[in-house]
Design a protein around this nucleic acid. Structure first.
Length: 553
RNA sequence: UGCCCGAUAGUAUAAAGGUAGUACAACGGUUUUUGGUACCGUUUGUCUAGGUUCGAAUCCUGGUCGGGCAACCA
């Protein structure tokens, strides 16, 4: 490790705790609620929690925070596990908050016995009304002074199913005048006659997040419980419960969640996009979910690198989408197999190349790789497909692709000179006629001719057809959450473009989902899940940087 | 009008009282059989007003701005 990276504030805390001997082993946890798919924001938390124990030793638990049976599903548990593994991390223990329901119940009884909790028969509305506001203190419920015996009895009857949903709750008895709203007698348990994805019908009362999270951390002797900023004000309650219960003192630390430009990151909003069919599902390649990014062609390495680069701090942030794209380009540049594909084809005829002749050319698969990634055979003939945008009837300044009279190199092949072109009635160019220069063959060029432009191509008679899906940002504005009105008003209508008729090298008939491809001069692509041997379908992960498009703007 | 967090180039993130640095972006250049990659260079910053100090991004005080807090969600 030669590169010295400075520590983030959590690493500083951990190093201090480890050096001072406060803890011998670092233990963290990643605690998703199984009520949706994991997204890139979760990836930040995953990389943080797992990365810390990878760096300092110790281990990380995966704990599903499943205290609300009505929103949670096993489908989500499975997808979340798959995503974490795919990102490259392995948890020590697979745990569920629901594993602790018995202990949590005992903790509640303990609190009641200490006269620190009571059963409240107020309605939700009454509780809200008596809660006060941030600027005015709340008022104690009339049930606040029930005796310990009565509370014990009522709480066990709650557990036994004697009450309907919403009839009563168990509340902590703390301070209705606290400046921290969460300390105004927070609800600890509520009644929900709902089947739980793991405990089934065993329980009809479920603990609230605040009565489950800290104690679960404590039971697992989590040394550093890391969460996002919105839990800062929960920390006082977290500490209060641990202290009153006299259990292992896990400590909570908060960092700023990830916000990514041109997307939304809340599970609620992502679920809405899925449910209302704005996208094809949680793993739509335009989604910022881990599964969406995976299908889009992002690699775990690139996502980890991204999480590393964005850093960990406490200030609100909005990361530019460009950084994520940089990270995936950086990784794919080193690893992707280069092939040629023509997305918007126009016919190029080489008039001095023999009609029935086919020549096999050799192409390096990856000039960035040590062994050049091996080579492949590329058939060449007198009729090719080239990219429509690589020809300009009236060339712009500094244009060094094809134009009447100009020369370009055909990648891996010969230099050709444009002699003529044809147009249809509407004025669209339909065909380009060139002559090739025989002694300019790639790797054996003895001509001494130098051309500035190199373009990609596919032999017309050998080309495979492919469908190509181009993606763009999901939203038209940087921060859809911050805009007026509904975030869906800002969906990008052009976030997907499907090209039905693209041509690709015959080599790609053996394309694999495990291999990432660079379509030379175009971008990085991967085989989509919808692809079949009969119809190859590719997703554009990200385009290549295009300096020409920029200067031309 | 309460409490809590925060504020360093366009975006992120360092500097633990002592030269404001790094990455991405932008701009310019070199190399190049991908207008890609690689490499080199340039521009741009401590929210504000006081105070402490030989010296403040850092410590203190006031202000400003941004975010969070009044779910039987997590």
């Amino acid at each position: 490790m030669s590169e010295e990276r400075s520590l983030n504030f959590i690493e500083e805390i951990i190093e201090n705790d480890l050096n001072s001997g406060k803890y011998a082993t670092l233990i963290t946890r990643f605690p998703p609620e199984p009520n949706g798919y994991l997204h890139i924001g979760h990836a930040k938390a995953i990389c943080l929690n797992f990365g810390l124990t990878k760096k300092y030793g110790g281990y990380t638990n995966l704990r599903f925070d499943d205290t609300n049976p009505v929103t949670e599903k096993t489908e989500y548990v499975n997808s979340q596990q798959e995503d974490i593994k795919w990102l490259g991390f392995q948890w020590k223990n697979e745990l569920y908050t629901s594993d602790y329901f018995d202990t949590l119940y005992d903790y509640a009884v303990d609190l009641i016995k200490k006269d620190l909790a009571y059963v409240d028969h107020s309605t939700a509305e009454e509780i809200a009304a008596l809660k006060g506001t941030p600027t005015e203190p709340g008022i104690g419920s009339t049930y606040r002074n029930r005796s310990v015996e009565e509370n014990l009895d009522l709480f066990s009857r709650m557990k036994n199913g004697e009450f309907e949903d919403g009839i009563c709750t168990l509340r902590a008895k703390i301070d209705m005048a606290s400046p921290n709203m969460l300390m105004r007698d927070p609800i600890l348990y509520r009644i929900k006659h709902a089947a739980h994805h793991r405990t089934g019908d065993k329980w009809c009362i479920y603990p609230m997040y605040d009565f489950a999270h800290g104690q679960s951390d404590s039971m697992e002797t989590i040394t550093h419980s890391i969460c996002t900023l919105e839990y800062v004000s929960h920390r006082e309650l977290y500490d209060w419960l641990i202290e009153k219960l006299g259990i292992f003192p896990s400590k909570q630390y908060e960092f700023a969640r990830l916000n990514l430009s041109y997307t939304v990151m809340s599970k609620r909003k992502l679920l809405q996009l899925v449910n209302e069919d704005f996208v094809s599902g949680w793993n739509d390649p335009r989604m910022p979910t881990i599964s969406g990014l995976r299908r889009r062609g992002y690699t775990p390495e690139s996502i980890r690198e991204f999480c590393d680069r964005i850093g960990i701090a406490k200030r609100e942030n909005l990361i530019e989408l460009g950084l994520l794209e940089f990270c995936v380009r950086e990784h794919l540049n080193k690893t992707a197999t280069r092939v040629m594909a023509v997305l918007d084809p126009i016919k190029l005829v080489i008039t001095n190349y023999q009609k029935d002749q086919t020549e096999i050319l050799i192409g390096e698969n990856n000039p960035e790789a040590e062994d050049k990634g091996g080579t492949r055979e590329i058939p060449f003939s007198n009729e090719l497909w080239i990219e429509r945008e690589d020809f300009m009837e009236e060339p712009a300044k500094k244009w060094f692709r094809l134009a009447p009279g100009s020369m370009v190199r055909l990648k891996h092949a010969y230099i050709v000179k444009c002699e003529d072109f044809k147009k249809d009635a509407e004025g669209n160019v339909t065909e380009i006629h060139c002559t090739y220069i025989p002694d300019t063959k790639s790797g054996a060029d003895t001509s001494g001719i130098n051309v500035k432009g190199t373009i990609h191509w596919v032999s017309r008679q050998h080309a495979k057809n492919a469908e190509i899906r181009l993606y763009d940002r999901l939203f038209t504005v940087e921060s859809p959450d911050a805009e007026e009105g509904d975030f869906k008003d800002y969906l990008n209508p052009n976030s997907i473009e499907v090209i039905k008729q693209a041509y690709i090298e015959p080599y790609m008939s053996n394309a694999s989902k495990d291999i990432r491809y660079q379509f030379i001069r175009k971008g990085y692509y991967c085989l989509d899940d919808d692809s079949t041997p009969e119809l190859l379908i590719f997703n554009r992960t990200v385009s290549l940087k295009d300096a020409w498009a920029k200067t031309n703007k």
